[in-house]
């Protein structure tokens, strides 16, 4: 048995090393000769094309905004799927949370967390950050609610239906902006060419659709991640179900 397991490990090691060797062979390391291809265009054209200061945000939400729609849809799919996996069962929600001190401290913190999350979302085109990151921070609020106050409080405060609505609205907003671009600019997700104001670079209102899309993604991701957490935590809070897996 032991020999068998060791052989297995040896085989695994061999396969990993062989694959790694081939991947290493494939890496091309040539002396740096300047950025070429579309990346060069992104670097030099962002200011002119989009008015955003964050080149990565410009790529994510303008040049390759379609990817972002897809990426947000992956999250959307996952959230929907996890909710489907854990649907149709009444789980007992726990309502006891942590101690009073923690609850008060949390209550004080919540506005600041929300503010921080909002700033990450709406400044996404100016500085590192954006809808995904801000949405994730936003979702921590509901996670903290669950942990500190218990999931029934969380469910009462921000009901699953509200989250559902926010999530879908964010997704619809993204699509709608794309469709506006299609109608006025001739192509899906057209930014400044479709008449969205480019603004002054570095100002909050700049970059055309980029801040709007950031907000849409923020709604989608924030609501989605909190649904995800809630779906998964409600099953673990059930004492009949929560025998931790032996590892």
């Amino acid at each position: 048995m032991r020999v068998h397991r060791n052989l297995q490990r040896l085989g695994a090691l061999g396969l990993s090393l062989a694959l790694g060797w081939w991947l290493w062979q494939g890496v091309t390391i040539s002396p740096f000769q300047g950025i070429t291809g579309p990346a060069a265009r992104y670097i030099h054209g962002t200011a002119r094309d989009t008015g955003a200061a964050n080149v990565v945000a410009a790529i994510l939400f303008d040049y390759r905004g379609f990817d972002t729609l897809g990426e947000a849809s992956v999250i959307y799919t996952t959230v929907c799927g996890v909710a489907l996996l854990f649907a149709k069962r009444r789980y007992r929600r726990s309502s006891h949370g942590l101690s009073f001190i923690v609850k008060r401290g949390m209550a004080l913190l919540v506005p600041f967390i929300l503010l921080y999350a909002s700033s990450i979302i709406v400044m996404g085109h100016l500085s590192p950050g954006g809808g995904f990151q801000g949405g994730a921070v936003m979702a921590t609020v509901t996670v903290l609610f669950c942990v500190i106050y218990g999931s029934s409080f969380e469910a009462a405060r921000v009901s699953p239906k509200v989250k559902e609505t926010i999530e879908s609205s964010g997704a619809l907003l993204f699509t709608a902006i794309g469709l506006i671009g299609l109608v006025t600019g001739g192509a899906f997700l057209t930014n400044s060419a479709a008449g969205f104001p480019r603004g002054m670079m570095g100002h909050l209102v700049s970059g055309g659709t980029i801040p709007l899309l950031n907000i849409a993604v923020g709604m989608k991701v924030g609501a989605g991640l909190s649904t995800l957490f809630y779906s998964m935590v409600k099953i673990l809070e059930d004492p009949t179900e929560s025998s931790p897996p032996e590892v």
């Binding site: 950025i35 291809g37 579309p38 990346a39 992104y42 670097i43 080149v55 990565v56 790529i59 994510l60 390759r64 990817d67």
Partner: peptide, 8 residues
Amino acid sequence: PVNPLPHS
């Protein structure tokens, strides 16, 4: 600047 495309 570094190449922003891989970042995205």
